[in-house]
Write a protein that binds this DNA or RNA. Structure first.
Length: 103
DNA sequence: CTCGTGACGGCGA
DNA sequence: ATCGCCGCCACGA
């Protein structure tokens, strides 16, 4: 499905669906979009796409916060903790449990 | 039209 | 454990 849409469109759609208090990875979104190897795309989308998207809920495959976020990972961690996601040194606690999954 | 780059991921040395 | 390379798709110049 959504074969008509570009990966970008699909990824944005999934990103928008990630609920507060949960996190997802670039690779997961890419995989959901059908391109598990296009994790880079997700990264690019996160920063070039809609600012209202919950980009702060995106972490790398290890549950660590984004590497090159222009405001500093500190900001992202603040946002996550504010949503109930506790982090320790830029690492999401219980990452596996908080990993969001579509249904 | 072509070229380069990127909020990443996984594997090899 | 660390470091480096390639691959992937989309978009800007």
């Amino acid at each position: 499905m959504a074969d008509n849409l570009s990966l970008r469109q699909v990824v944005e759609a999934y990103m928008a669906r990630v609920p507060a208090g949960a996190v997802t990875t670039y690779g997961d979104l890419a995989a959901l979009a059908g391109q598990p190897t296009a994790a880079r795309l997700v990264g690019g989308i996160a920063h070039t796409g809609n600012e209202q998207l919950p980009w702060h809920r995106l972490v790398n495959s290890r549950g660590k916060l984004a590497a090159g976020y222009p405001g500093g990972r500190r900001t992202q961690q603040q946002l996550l903790e504010k949503e109930g996601v506790s982090c320790t040194d830029f690492l999401v606690d219980d990452f596996d449990l908080r990993r969001w999954r579509p249904r």
